[in-house]
């Protein structure tokens, strides 16, 4: 494992920890999109079907279980937890996320490496992950002010795929391995969707000001 891959995994893990911390410490999920959280849960469930068929390493298996478990736990909290669910910004979180699911699935049926259940679900998870942040970004834009932990959460979640791209470039040169082009293109799209957010995140950091997204 190279440093970029590790940095990617760690920022991904940190983003989840920050989100859990926010929900646990403030007993609130304000500013968090349930739609995005549901999409992520679906992404992990679809991608890690290989838990049952391929073993890579203890590290991989543990991380996969952590990603699946934490995303389901967050969805459960936002839907079921007596106190947490009260703070959910339902009226702002109206993105039609089923269209993203349907679109990603159709694309996976058309563009995949092999016509097998696992490969189609893998491609589906990659496409869906690329766009899964959209409901969250829309929610942040609508609510205007972004609280500190929510801002950090989105930042780390965006940074993770950018590190993966560096990891793919690194592996291309060191291992003569070209990662699947489906992930390259989706990863670039995914990172590009954060460009706007990154810009305002760095500006607020530079000016030591509260993060605000223009409407």
């Amino acid at each position: 494992m190279n440093i970029f891959r590790l940095a990617g995994d760690l920022t991904h893990l940190i983003s989840i920890l920050v989100l859990l911390l926010k929900i646990y410490a403030t007993k609130s999920c304000s500013g968090i999109s349930l739609k995005t959280q549901e999409l992520y849960a679906l992404v992990f469930l679809a991608r890690y079907l290989d838990l049952f068929t391929d073993f890579v390493s203890v590290y991989n298996t543990v991380m996969k279980l952590v990603f699946i478990g934490s995303s389901l736990a967050i969805v459960w909290c936002m839907r079921m937890h007596r106190i947490v669910k009260r703070s959910y910004n339902r009226e702002l979180d109206t993105f039609r996320h089923y269209f993203l699911v349907a679109g990603s699935f159709v694309l996976a049926l058309v563009v995949h490496e092999k016509f097998t259940l696992q490969e189609i679900f893998w491609a589906f998870s990659i496409y869906l992950e690329a766009v899964a942040i959209l409901p969250q970004l829309v929610l942040l834009q609508r609510s205007g002010n972004v609280d500190n932990l929510t801002g950090q959460y989105v930042f780390f979640l965006g940074a993770y795929r950018a590190f993966y791209i560096l990891n793919w470039i690194y592996r291309y040169f060191t291992e003569q391995r070209f990662g699947r082009w489906i992930s390259w293109i989706s990863g670039l799209v995914q990172t590009a969707l954060y460009a706007d957010f990154f810009y305002y995140y760095f500006m607020s950091w530079k000016n030591n000001a509260k993060l605000q997204l223009p409407a």
Binding site: R5, D9, H12, D50, D54, V56, S57, N60, M63, K64, F67, Y164, N167, W168, R171, Y172, Q176, R177, F178, G179, R180, S183
Partner: peptide, 10 residues
């Protein structure tokens, strides 16, 4: 040419 597949990634 470079081989494909990064099945070891998350």
């Amino acid at each position: 040419g470079p081989k494909s597949s990064h099945k070891d990634e998350l």
